[in-house]
Amino acid sequence: MSERCPIELSELTACMREALGNGFTAVKAKRLHGGAQKTVYLVQAQNGFKLMFYIWDLKQNYFEEEVAANYANGEQGSFGAELFRRNNQYLIEQGVRTPALYAMDSSQEKYPFDFALVEYVSGGDLLPYLEHPSEALRDQVFGKCNELLRSLHQIKRSSWGKVWHPADRYSKPCETGIYDNAIIQLDFLAGEVSRVAQQHERLLDVLEGMRCTIVPRAEYSLIHSELGPDHILLNESLEPYFIDIEGAEFFDLEYEHSFLQFRFPNYEQYLSRDDLDEQRLRFYRFCHHISCASGGLKLLQRGFPDRQLAMEIHASNLAQTLSYT
């Protein structure tokens, strides 16, 4: 995939001036790597101002096939400018910090993709702080992250789904879709990895057994859905902001925390809570490992540029998946 921004600096300048005023001229657009679904550029103006430029182009998405399948099934998944716009607006209305949306164009009149101008948060993500030598600084950073996380999770309602979905949109339990996807991903892994093929039936039995332990629920929390240390940015005052918010929705809180458990090495110290359903936690964590093992392998097969990262995602989650047999 090309490093060059598909929109000329002159056009970026016009977008910036329309959104922010005439005092801005785009002089540089640098592509940032790491994401698998949308393309991101850091844009710098002549006056030192910076912003993020997001592009949602399905043809540039490493999970194009899966997104298309979601669309075919009437589901929106976690890809798209409209998801970003609605979730951004809702989070800000609820007082949950996320970078501001300056402007968005989803008309595709001039370009074959949707794009947006988004606030630049300058302090980087959480990765450097996971093992920072200063305990006081770690306490400060992750204490604030826990506060932000709880401000998100305290938003609740009696039905699950996207923030704008009507209460009666779904009649099936929320874990059904996760279970169905886990079966699809196990089938894929079994066709690609001999160790999974050998344990395929056993893994399916374990998955079904876990699902059967889940009892009905009538309250759901607003969650991010894929929250790792690289999905929280800090400003210069070390205040955290959620990014990559397209997948945010009302869902089981355990879905979020089961992901946090293996994405944050310091989870127990800073982010854990004691009011979670252990059966749901175990089920969702197994499903996460299956999905990540499959996703990492697909990234490798589809030319993701950071092959080491893709291999680490695949290998570590494959080992965890097989540990359930």
Rank of each mutant, 00 (worst) to 15 (best):
A26H: 01
A29L: 06
L32F: 09
L32R: 06
L32A: 07
G34K: 10
Q37K: 11
Q37A: 08
K38V: 00
T39F: 00
T39I: 10
V40A: 06
V40E: 03
V43Q: 03
N47K: 06
N47C: 07
G48N: 04
G48T: 06
Y54I: 03
I55R: 00
W56F: 10
W56P: 00
W56S: 03
D57E: 07
L58Q: 04
E65A: 14
E66D: 15
V67R: 04
A69T: 13
N70C: 13
Y71T: 11
G77A: 02
F84P: 01
R86L: 14
R86M: 12
Q94A: 15
V96Y: 01
R97I: 10
R97M: 12
T98G: 10
A100P: 06
Y102V: 07
Y102Q: 05
A103W: 11
A103G: 13
M104E: 15
M104S: 15
D105A: 05
D105V: 08
S106K: 11
S106W: 07
F115N: 00
E119H: 08
G123C: 12
P128D: 11
L130D: 11
L130M: 14
E131T: 15
H132K: 08
P133L: 08
P133I: 07
S134I: 05
E135L: 14
L137T: 14
L137F: 11
R138S: 04
R138L: 04
R138V: 06
Q140W: 11
G143I: 07
